Amino acid sequence: MPTKILLTGGSGFVASHILSLLLERGHSVVTTVRSEEKAGQIRQRFSAVSKSKLDFAIKGDISEENAFEAAIKADPPFTIVIHTASPYYYNPQDIQRDLIDPAVKGTVGILNSIKCNAPSVRRVILTSSFVAVAHDAQGVSWDHTYTAEDWNPVTPEEATTNPFRGISSKTFAERGAWEFVEKEKPNFDLVTFCPPLVFGPVAHSLKSFDGLNTSNKRIWGIMTGGARNEIPDTGFYLWVDVRDLALSHVKAAEAGTDVANKRFLVIGPGYFNNKEIVRILHENFPKYAAEHSPTLSASGGVYPAQGLYRYDVEPVKKLLGVDFRPLDDCIVNFARSLENYPFGVSLS
């Protein structure tokens, strides 16, 4: 049944796909954005959608106290909130200030605003990360099957030691959400998703390819050169297509109590390495790859000799009915989506 949903961070990579699916499925959406400019970009993309079905709330700094209080008050009221807005980028000047505080304060803040101002909300859906599952500082355990029961034991001290570990902000934000629900016992339940690297087609507005999400920048870097005879080390081997991650969020919004207060791993089939990306580019865009990408005979980018850890996504398949796209489809559709931008590439 169509419902009214608040979606945070609507101009982002994942949220832009969630927004499309919500509107396709008849829901009414208010999405938060950082500026009128970003609202205008989304309005242009969905120019045929009425204001009653798509509206905006402008919110710059999500870490401010009561940042979402005004947005959460609505008539008619919201029944679902999907919270995707949480910053991550390389080389922050201050990990605590720039990454951890906005993630935690934004997440706990929106939950508190819902509890105090929106008793109609029955479910909050949070985009977390596989980083909240496996320890980014110590590395993953090779002989282990990761499930939703696993938690990254990273400490605040470890998280602030270098910019890469700043992504542990996702861990602290998700822990804060579950602790809030346990302590405050609000009227709503909580569903969280923990994806690894998120690849796939780009649908949101970009001023340049510098604005690609962190995961897709890996593919873009391979597409555009570097060492032609050497492929970068892969380092991390789990991925998911953004369209499958978005569908998981939407299906959780539409689901009943059987998914209440559940945590899900959302991971694509099998594994990937950078050499596989090179192969896919050459098989599907031979002329472009021959001119810009590493050669098929280039060394590097393979799987580690010690083997790969395992993971369990059966709960998200069983409870939400999500089938995952193969890697080839994901990479090809990402590359083709880049042709849609005025500064885009020509793959032919």
Rank of each mutant, 00 (worst) to 15 (best):
G9F: 12
S16N: 15
L21Y: 13
E24L: 15
T32F: 13
K38L: 02
S50T: 14
A57T: 03
D61K: 04
S63R: 04
A67C: 13
F78C: 12
V81M: 03
A85Y: 09
Y89R: 11
P102F: 00
V124E: 02
I125H: 00
A132Q: 11
W142M: 12
T147A: 06
V154Q: 04
S168K: 00
F172K: 00
A173C: 01
G176V: 11
A177D: 01
L190P: 04
P195V: 08
H204G: 02
H204L: 06
S205N: 14
S215W: 07
K217E: 13
K217V: 08
I222T: 12
G225V: 10
D233M: 09
T234E: 12
V240P: 07
L247K: 13
V259Q: 02
A260I: 03
K262N: 07
I267G: 05
G268N: 00
P269T: 08
N274A: 07
K275F: 03
E283G: 02
F285I: 09
S293K: 06
T295P: 03
G300Q: 01
Y303M: 11
P304D: 09
R310H: 14
V313H: 03
L320E: 01
L320F: 01
F324W: 07
P326L: 13
L327Q: 06
D329Q: 15
C330W: 04
A335M: 05
A335H: 08
R336V: 07
E339L: 10
P342Q: 07
V345E: 05
